[in-house]
Design a protein around this nucleic acid. Structure first.
Lengths: 198, 198
DNA sequence: TCTCAAGCGGAACGTTCACTCCGCTTGAGA
DNA sequence: TCTCAAGCGGAGTGAACGTTCCGCTTGAGA
């Protein structure tokens, strides 16, 4: 499921690969807490290593963030796969809540999620599966006819805003947001005053 | 409506106050285009002045951003006032679309909107009026009974995410987002799987 | 056990960027 | 018109931060 960024010329020494794992986890926590403007020194310190070690594994701070993005997108893709086994056209709803949970645990790198150049094919695969989930929901009458994949994008983007603004005070705010979006996209909801996006 | 940051010990010279106006407008445009990480030099250049002039009017870059925030909050408050004259319990919906438009024109400073320390009383007044709009909508059966002011916050926050992610390609994405949120909060929408926030 | 490629820490470096300083300019009151 | 407080531009300053470098350490294969 996880594709490593590291070329596989040679396996890492045991301590080195453990440090790599720690660095990624530390980056996830530090960026979630202080945003991506947190310094690399804090990430290294939280991982219990020096900055030199960080830079031995990741050529730039950007590459470290890209690894976080890749990990999150992997999770999203896996959620999409699992959602496609949900019966009754409810896969999309399950998917959106799963994505919300994944976003909440990785709120530090959300700003990079949808314009990262190194994960285009991964994102493409996610979109394909999203389209399938959307079709399934529509066929079962669980979502309005004019809903498009752009509305799923909107839900993702709105999640980012809610997660970055609500902070640690309201850890469940994103759930309510997803629930409102889902309710607004049901066929039973009133007609939308704004047309679907291209 | 607009409260100046400048102490009124002495009126500004005509050219100086014109430059001040230009600086604010330039900051709005530059930050909307490149985000708040854009340099002060670019703001000054766009305004047609040097950085020294910028710093004569605003003690720090932060103070300049705070001025943008204040301006936007002033707009929001004015929208809330106008919305309270809308009949039939539809003031809240009007308000949300107005706020969306104001956010769209000021997307550069949205990250600061809700944790700026210098505008607490202004925000408090907005919240009071939001509560009134919410009550009115509820009395007219235009919004679900369990909706709270926290749901209005969610709509604001989601707007930020949509505006920062959709960029200039999809200038109307925020309208669709507001429409979905409104539809999800109608009494006719299905019951929400997630309870209202505290 | 021995060897050494690989790994490590953290001081030092270079760049970026917010902010200051100062000599020149100018609007406006007398 | 004259004066000068106020305003102006932009080179210069200092701090923060991403990145590099190098001498020391260590896991693992022989």
């Amino acid at each position: 499921m996880t594709t490593s960024t590291e070329p596989e010329h040679r396996a890492l020494r045991r301590d080195a690969s453990e440090n790599r794992r720690r660095l990624i986890e530390a980056a996830r926590l530090v960026f979630a807490e202080h945003g991506m403007e947190a310094g690399v020194e804090e990430v290294a310190h939280r991982a219990g290593v020096g900055v030199g070690t960080l830079y031995r594994r990741f050529p730039t701070k950007d590459a470290l963030i890209a690894e976080l993005v890749r990990t999150l997108l992997d999770e999203v893709l896996e959620s999409a796969r699992q959602a496609s086994t949900v019966p009754g056209g409810d896969g999309l709803e399950h998917f959106l809540f799963d994505v919300g949970a994944a976003h909440a645990a990785n709120r530090g790198c959300l700003a990079r999620l949808w314009n990262d150049e190194t994960t285009t094919t991964l994102r493409q695969e996610i979109r394909t599966r999203m389209a399938t989930l959307l079709d399934d929901a529509r066929r079962h009458g669980r979502i309005r006819d004019d809903a498009t994949i752009a509305d799923v994008d909107l839900t993702f983007w709105s999640l980012r805003g809610v997660l970055e603004a609500s902070g640690h005070d309201l850890p469940d705010a994103w759930r309510r947001q997803v629930a409102i979006s889902v309710a607004g996209l049901r066929p039973s909801a009133e007609a939308l005053s704004q047309p679907a996006l291209a």
